[in-house]
Simulated scan of single mutants.
Amino acid sequence: MCAIFRDNGLNITIQANQKIVDFLDVTFNLHTGLHKPYKKPNDSITYIHRESNHPPSIIKNLPQGIEKRLTNNSSNEKIFEDAAIPYNEALKKNGHVMALKYAEKKTNTTTKNENKSKETANEETKETGTTNRRKRRITWFNPPYSKNVLSNIGKKFFDLLNSCFPPNHKLHKIINKNTVKLSYSCMPNTKQIISSHNKRIINESSNKASTTKLCNCRDKASCPLQGKCLEQSLVYQATVSETNTKKIDTYIGITENTFKTRFNQHNYVKLQTTPQKVGHGSQRACVETKR
């Protein structure tokens, strides 16, 4: 494996006997036996604003979710309070009023009682011979959420469900309030829409450029534009010399067609053209002499 990585210019670094390790979002300290939340030093904490156009349940549960995660990743309240400072600042900056507080974890006694209740339930199941019922199949309806919509979409949807699939309907068994649930979805913001649009346009342009034929000359060595004679919409410059007087003039032309089409037009009027690339982009230079 190391050889494969090395062949691709990659290195593997192995560190052993570490006493303090950062794993995902937790730092484990084997010296003290404690753990604390971890974030990268240059990481900036950003949350959605309280007045953002998101479903109320998401905004309401955001501080609670952060509080729960920091509590689980902290060994004690002191570690929690030290780690919660930047998170409280980020929440306050975005209009959230709730301050993060350390929640006491469940004791071992509570856990043992829960395990005993589960064991008792399993024994009762074995005695009665009943098994766990199959989970209900749920169909989710996820309409996009917007504060600009004042109608109660959820209520109207379920009213429509009841009117279209009443209890005597043959599909009521699989389409009812117990089998169909509603949850709002979030739409992409303006930045995501613009970024997605630009990415699609760039990909289309790159794919088109990769599949576009640049030269159709049988003899590639004699191509008038070094393998790019089918380029379109360009400006070219030519140095023209007369055979008799040896007078040299400069000719600048522009064409919307391919350069090869324009090149053949010059040949049609008995001009011999030898193009030379002298610049960037669509600028071309060529030397033309009369026969």
Rank of each mutant, 00 (worst) to 15 (best):
N142T: 09
N142G: 09
P143T: 00
P144V: 03
P144Y: 09
P144D: 12
Y145M: 00
S146L: 02
V149T: 09
L150V: 14
N152Q: 01
I153F: 04
I153M: 12
I153W: 03
G154V: 09
K155V: 03
K155S: 06
K155E: 13
K156W: 08
F157T: 04
F157M: 08
L160P: 01
L161R: 05
N162A: 13
N162Q: 13
C164E: 03
P167F: 07
P167C: 11
P167H: 03
H169V: 02
H169P: 01
K170F: 05
K170P: 06
L171H: 07
H172Y: 12
H172M: 04
H172F: 05
K173G: 07
I174R: 03
I174C: 01
I174V: 04
I174N: 09
I174F: 08
I174A: 07
I175N: 02
N176H: 01
N176V: 02
K177Q: 11
T179L: 03
T179I: 00
T179S: 02
T179D: 00
K181C: 04
L182M: 14
L182V: 00
S183H: 13
S183T: 15
S183W: 03
Y184N: 00
Y184A: 00
C186N: 06
M187H: 08
P188L: 00
T190H: 08
K191R: 10
I194C: 03
I194S: 00
S195Q: 07
S195M: 07
S196V: 01
H197R: 12
N198E: 13
N198C: 10
N198Q: 15
K199M: 15
R200L: 04
R200K: 14
I201A: 01
I202V: 10
I202N: 14
N203G: 08
N203L: 13
E204K: 14
S205R: 14
S206H: 13
N207R: 06
A209T: 10
S210M: 13
T211R: 03
T211P: 02
T211H: 09
T212K: 05
T212N: 07
T212W: 02
T212G: 02
K213L: 10
K213F: 04
K213E: 15
L214P: 04
L214S: 07
C217D: 03
R218V: 06
D219L: 09
D219V: 11
K220S: 08
A221D: 14
A221K: 11
S222R: 15
P224A: 05
L225H: 10
L225I: 04
Q226E: 14
Q226T: 05
Q226M: 12
G227H: 01
G227E: 02
G227K: 06
C229G: 02
E231A: 15
E231H: 13
L234D: 04
Y236S: 02
Y236N: 01
Q237V: 14
Q237F: 08
Q237M: 10
E242Y: 11
E242Q: 09
T245H: 09
K246H: 11
K247V: 07
I248H: 07
I248D: 10
I248Y: 06
D249M: 05
T250N: 07
T250A: 08
Y251H: 10
G253H: 12
I254N: 14
T255F: 04
T258K: 03
F259C: 02
F259S: 05
K260C: 12
T261I: 15
T261D: 11
R262L: 04
N264C: 15
Q265K: 15
N267K: 15
